[in-house]
Amino acid sequence: MTDRASSGYKSGSTLERMLRAGHFAVTGELGPPQSADGDHIREKAGYLRGIVDGVNITDNQTAVVRMSSLGAAVIAIEEGLEPVMQMTCRDRNRLSMQADFLSAYALGIRNMLALTGDHQSFGNHPTAKNVHDLDSMQLIQVLRDLRDEKKFECGDPVKGVEPRFFIGAAAAPDAGPVEWRPYRLAKKVNAGADFIQTQLVYNTKAFEKYMEEVRQLGLHERVCILVGVGPLKGPGMARYMRDFVPGISMPDHIIDRMSKAAAGIPKEEKAARRDAWRAEGIQVCIELIQQVREIEGVAGVHVMAIEWEEAVVSIVKGAGLLPRPALD
């Protein structure tokens, strides 16, 4: 890794090298358990190994306490995956974040995704105090300064090996104010983001418009944009996303497609209906990947199959992205 870093790579991670080589990258997601069960991660890792270039290890996602992203990322490495460790601003202050960056690098983690974090009111400790000492923009800058300036946030030098991460950030093209979203992305790129993973995209028309503005700002040449896609489990999930999840634009034609998927199957045949919906959800996801791949400036996809990791192989294979390219 050190050799690769000195040969022009920022971190030398597989994800960085895949993108640098011009390959269409694929990342996945693995949610740590609400327990101390490492086998939970080992089992999920089996669904993703060899299928994706990097695996996001979520950080107390939806503000529910889980095994830490650092600990789970280390198990993922042991299982032959390359983790993209997530770090939210909700739970840690700048001391704790930087300490975890040092640990993460020492333990072999090379990709770090800087996130604001879901609000604690959505999780299982709604009376907790949130931190937000830094915001995601500032967190990106801290990661860049640690790597490129060998400096802590306070300005003190790193005394020895500096943590060299491939720095990721999130983007929510469909959140408000929509017209400012390309500019928020520009801020993240200026702060030092190397790659972007977007919120789930279902409305490809709106996303094309977003990318048009991103290209006008020249951002696609400065950052690798991975589009968030995910399989729907049924029409109910599609409607829930349309009605209750901010920052996701769900077009009616996808909801219609999901509804029609089980149209000919009697209501009492629950398993058959479920299978029909899920098959359609995977097919819709494959088509989304094919559509966004045609958009100039899209460097890859981030497949979020929430608690449905088994679906990832069908999606990636169906999209013609297997086997993953070999790197030197």
Binding site: D135, M137, Q138, G176
Partner: peptide
């Protein structure tokens, strides 16, 4: 979330 650099993805 006391953000200083613009809205998070939870604005709609």
């Amino acid at each position: 979330k006391q953000l200083l650099n613009g809205p998070c993805g939870g604005s709609e």
